[in-house]
């Protein structure tokens, strides 16, 4: 069986889901017998080099670059999986959704107790080289169609492993609902 091609991305996430992936430990060595990595922060590949079988997405979308990445993944990956609460529901970063963006920026760059005052007037960062922040944090499925969802913050390594093996081998994932964790 030819190896399946996997790509991964972290959007507005904390990389905890990628770290949980690494927590499959020794199975990493089995994994590289099963799959090949394309575009992913696990390697140095920046661009897609081919169509992929499986795309794993960590994090929701908080700026325009996240949106472009996600759309690009949808175009290049046959199956797209939302990994973790941030990708599924926006997760912790979406706590800002009930607060005007300007207030979040002002708190960080104007009002913080260690923000330097004095001679130079304080600024909120703005520059053509910075991406545009969205009005709120969007879960992935509000931007593109997602095929599967792995719950958890992060999903346990065993779940990531079993789900991946299921996808690669075309078997059904046999986890009783009660064993899922949503924290």
């Amino acid at each position: 069986m030819p190896k399946k091609i996997i790509a991964t991305a972290s959007l507005a996430g904390c990389f905890g889901c990628h770290m949980s992936f690494l927590d499959i430990d020794e199975r990493l060595l089995d994994l590289i017998e099963l799959v090949e990595f394309d575009k992913s922060p696990f390697n140095d590949l920046k661009e897609f080099s081919r169509a992929c079988d499986i795309g794993l997405i960590e994090g929701g979308c908080c700026n325009d670059e996240n949106v472009h990445t996600l759309i690009n993944f949808r175009q290049r990956c046959r199956v797209l999986v939302a990994v973790g609460e941030c990708a599924i529901m926006g997760g912790l970063p979406s706590l800002r959704n009930v607060i005007p963006l300007q207030e979040c920026l002002a708190e960080a760059y104007l009002h913080g107790p260690t923000v330097a005052g004095g001679a130079t007037p304080n600024v909120i960062p703005h520059d053509p080289d910075l991406p545009k922040i969205l009005d709120r944090v969007y879960p992935c499925h509000e931007i593109v169609k997602m095929d599967y969802f792995l719950p958890g913050c992060p999903p346990r390594a065993d779940l990531i492993w079993d789900a991946l093996v299921a996808l690669v081998t075309g078997q059904e994932l046999k986890w009783p609902y009660a064993t899922f964790k949503f924290d």
Partner: peptide, 11 residues
């Protein structure tokens, strides 16, 4: 340039 912003301090 660091191009990410989350807003923890506020939320």
């Amino acid at each position: 340039h660091i191009v990410e912003f989350r807003g923890f301090e506020r939320f």
